[in-house]
Amino acid sequence: MSVTAADLKKVFAKAVPADVMAKIDPAQPMAAQGVDSLAITAMAVALQHAYGVTVTPEDGVRLKTLNDVAAWVNTVKAAS
């Protein structure tokens, strides 16, 4: 089962304020939609807990949108 942006919204429920999360467009950069560094940090830890994947600095600079993150999770999971 591949991970979707909708799955990620559930995983990130506590990482990102609910009002921000509700309005997020998965195709648009998260930073532009009110997701700050602390929220992204919490998201990264949530990814570790939920899928056992860790964002590296190299990966991190490429992950701009929620869709980017979902695709990256699927790639990393497939490779492992």
Binding site: A31, I40, T41, A44, V55, P57, G60, K64
Partner: peptide, 13 residues
């Protein structure tokens, strides 16, 4: 310039 990136996550980790 790096807001919205994973820098803080890597710092904290």
């Amino acid at each position: 310039a790096y807001r919205g990136s994973f820098v803080l996550f890597h710092l904290f980790s």
